Computed example of a mutant assay.
Amino acid sequence: MTPSTNLPASYESLNLTHIKLSHHPASPQVTPVIIITLNRPEKHNAFTPQMADSLTKAYQMIHIDPRVKVVVLTGAGKMFCAGSDLDVGFGDGKGKAVDFRDIGGRVALAMHRCHKPTIVAMNGSAVGVGMTMTLPAAIRICHENSKYGFVFTRRGLTIESCASYFLPRLIGFSRAMHLITTGGVYPPSSPYFGDLFTTILPDATQVLPHSLELAQNLSENVSSLASSMSRALMWEGAESPEAAHLLESRVFHHMIGQRDYKEGVASFLEKRKPCFESDPTIMSSPHYPWWSEVAIGREPTASNLNSKL
């Protein structure tokens, strides 16, 4: 994915398998808030390779689209996601393990590296990859009477979607160990989840509207550049207070030279809504990324063993 990628005039015109994209509020043009809906209600939105490809493509476009500020991810029907579609499965386990890439991980990384924050509107129950793929999101909002769980060990599988990185950092190792070891399914109020869900609502029909209200607020009042850099500082932070001080100082110094800082101060003093326009793909700190990114491409193979070169 490069900055020269053609962006759609309308995300609603995209024909992506097993997901649906919508503008919010309803508009023929692209809006700052984009809704991504897992769209297999007849299968409880069970996860498939095609869904993974569609989600990855959508996030890669939104990542570089300055028109979009926030993503709301939700599910069609009464369930958010029933996990992987076990009728489809994961292949036969043949081939080299070093070349295998789990499909949930591709989605998690696309969401994690997207400059735009995701609010997950978990309008119903979710298990397996239906849980792990939401971990890179900024906010998770759920339904009080739905059930949630990391059921992998009960299916003879290990966790995926980069959950071994995200989950313990979000809720602590002790809670994460309990959830993964038991493979249990619990209500969102269970102490095992800690504060994984930032808001728990009594009525499933409230989840999406509440998420959209929050997304609209963020799109109107928060700098995409400041939000993206701040989230990266937390996820890819330094290893000591002193190193954090140095890194934060460098990024902060960059930010005070940007238009969004001047606009944020002016709008506050003038008691009006801000108009943040800095594009994170262009105006990110020159130190970004300040970490060494791991290459996840498959290992190369020889194309012509008979070559004399």
Score class of each variant (00 low, 15 high):
Val151Cys: 14
Asp99Pro: 08
Thr134Gln: 14
Ala97Asp: 15
Met133Ala: 08
Tyr186Gln: 07
Pro117Lys: 02
Val107Cys: 12
Met79Tyr: 10
Thr118Ile: 03
Met133Pro: 00
His112Asn: 10
Phe80His: 02
Lys147Gln: 13
Ala176Pro: 02
Pro188Leu: 09
Gly93Ser: 12
Gln60Asn: 14
Arg101Thr: 11
Met61Ala: 11
His178Pro: 02
Arg113Pro: 01
Gly149Arg: 04
Val120Cys: 14
His115Pro: 00
Glu160Ser: 07
Tyr148Ser: 05
Pro168Cys: 09
Gly83Leu: 08
Gly91Asn: 12
Met79Gly: 00
Leu170Trp: 07
Ala108Lys: 05
Gly91Pro: 15
Gly172Met: 10
Val88Pro: 10
Gly105His: 06
Val70Ile: 07
Asp87Lys: 11
Leu167Val: 04
Gly93Ala: 10
Thr134Asn: 14
Ala82Lys: 03
Arg169Leu: 10
Ile62Arg: 00
Gly104Glu: 10
Met177Cys: 08
Lys147Pro: 04
Lys57Gly: 04
Leu86Phe: 07
Gly91Leu: 02
Gly75Ser: 05
Met131Thr: 01
Asp87His: 10
Val68Asp: 00
His143Ser: 11
Leu135Ile: 06
Asp87Asn: 14
Pro136Ser: 04
Arg155His: 12
Asp102Pro: 15
Lys116Phe: 00
Ala76Lys: 01
Phe80Met: 04
Val107Leu: 09
Phe152Gly: 00
His112Leu: 04
Thr132His: 05
Ser164Lys: 05
Ile159Ser: 04
Met61Leu: 15
Gly83Ile: 07
Lys69Cys: 03
Val70Cys: 00
Gly149Ser: 10
Val88Thr: 12
Pro188His: 09
His115Ile: 04
Met61Gln: 15
Pro187Asn: 11
Leu179Ala: 06
Asn145Phe: 12
Thr74Asn: 01
Ala176Asn: 08
Gly89Met: 09
Val151Arg: 01
Ile64Asn: 01
Leu86Ile: 09
Pro117Asn: 03
Cys81Phe: 02
Tyr59Val: 05
Ala110Ser: 11
Leu135Gln: 08
Phe152His: 08
Met122Leu: 14
Cys114Ala: 05
Asn123Phe: 08
Gly95Gln: 13
Arg169Lys: 15
